[in-house]
Design a protein around this nucleic acid. Structure first.
Lengths: 239, 239
DNA sequence: CGTCGACCGCTGGAGCCCCAACTTTGCGAG
DNA sequence: CTCGCAAAGTTGGGGCTCCAGCGGTCGACG
């Protein structure tokens, strides 16, 4: 190792250091490309790449026409306790409890399961489902995107008025949800997602696949997409 | 919208399409920069950027001196069910059950809590702790990196022989773990991590902070870092 | 006939340049 | 003193080029 570290890393490390040390407080401007090339005696490509890397780490944010700034990060992370029982409003209850106004829109439509969802719900691909998309916002800012797939037979209940949790709605049908399985990984946002969530370039998302089971049958599954740099998902459970 | 999509996106989308459709099966070579510039009539920068984006999505992998190839992804994802009760070998039990050989090395050392860990364990910063780092491998390939912090008083039990779970070790001390809280977000790997886990450039990691509680006191906390593109974390719990 | 080395192609780092779109600033007119 | 507008600065997309390091191939030579 240590043959010849890339030039841009020197810049990245120096600036990162300053941010972590607090020499560059939140909101402070980062030198522009031109200034960095002079200051560190590197090419423009390296300066640019350094800014890009820092931005993708979430440490700084670039504003076109203005400059790069140390990111303000209101410490929302870890405040959001994810409760399993209040679908379809995970993480929302806590924000509300903290005084944030959470709003959302959604719309449902009938769809066929398709290969992926069919596998998750153990149905055949042409099974009739109801798909509902939710976009949640806190104080106007996009928060998370959720897409839920339910068996068509349960969908009629799901009207504007009926904002009860999936679990209580199901219970009204005589179905007792017995288990929730969530699977989370990280990936690059799809174009729709970066649009809807107003994501900066290079920001990854957490993708949670959640499936509700009744006994040994899956009855609902949803995809939840969350900006990975702004929020985290917290699971809490008794042993 | 749709003012003027970046040029490189056209290339990305076309190749992604082909990979998803299976026209480009795992292992298939992706055209080189030079070929892409000709094929799509774009500049080298765009071709390059397209390859970079696809690589960071985990769809292709670049090998210096050889080319880019569609990534082979053994469908490990979602097979790994994360069980809470078998620390310090989360996710390992399932792999073993599937016939994979999982190996690990670790080493413990005494440390002071420091600001971050102190906050998580509700101690003061100079509290004496034992830090243990684990590197897990499946079939030789790095799988996950875990760093665990325990109160020094419990550490003596933690010898080479004693591979029992934290929970049973604690129980032997009369401490009953009552709750596990995990918080997951995604971020860029630190240099140590990409080294240890042999991560390709641009791959993000899942960072799980796990804290074990006994009543209202946290007794152990750990940081678990997992390549976000190869693995996912699955939580399963009864309602 | 087999082995080894030269050569070609590919990636990834780096430099430099151009341009569109957007912000900020500062100056001059009213 | 205020308003408006133009100039200057900055990001982000894109282009072109050079080079080091690595890998695979193929032909020359033993």
């Amino acid at each position: 190792m240590a043959t010849s570290d890339p030039v841009y890393l020197r810049v990245v490390e120096d600036i990162r250091r300053q941010i972590i040390d607090g020499a560059l407080p939140p909101g402070a401007p980062i030198p522009s490309r031109a200034q960095l090339t002079r200051k560190y005696q590197v090419g423009e490509t390296a300066a640019r790449h350094a800014l890009r890397v820092l931005a993708s780490e979430g440490l700084i944010i670039g504003r076109v026409g203005s400059g790069h700034y140390v990111r303000e990060r209101p410490d929302l992370t870890s405040l959001h306790r994810w409760r399993f029982l209040d679908h379809p409003t995970p993480l929302v209850a806590d924000l509300q409890a903290q005084g944030s106004r959470v709003t959302w829109d959604w719309h449902s439509e009938p769809v066929e399961a398709g290969p992926e969802i069919a596998k998750r719900l153990r149905l055949n691909e042409s099974a009739p489902l109801t798909r509902t998309r939710y976009l949640y916002r806190t104080d106007g800012k996009p928060l998370q995107l959720a897409t839920s797939y339910e068996l068509r037979e349960f969908a009629p209940l799901h009207t504007d008025e009926d904002r009860r949790s999936l679990i209580s709605r199901m219970f009204a049908y005589g179905i007792k949800i017995t288990e929730v399985v969530e699977s989370v990984h990280t990936r690059v946002p799809r174009p729709v997602e970066s649009d809807a969530l107003a994501l900066a370039a290079g920001v990854h998302v957490l993708h949670v696949e959640r499936t509700h089971w009744a006994g040994d049958r899956p009855v609902e599954t949803s995809d939840i997409v969350i900006p990975g740099d702004r929020f985290r998902v917290t699971y809490s459970m008794p042993v």
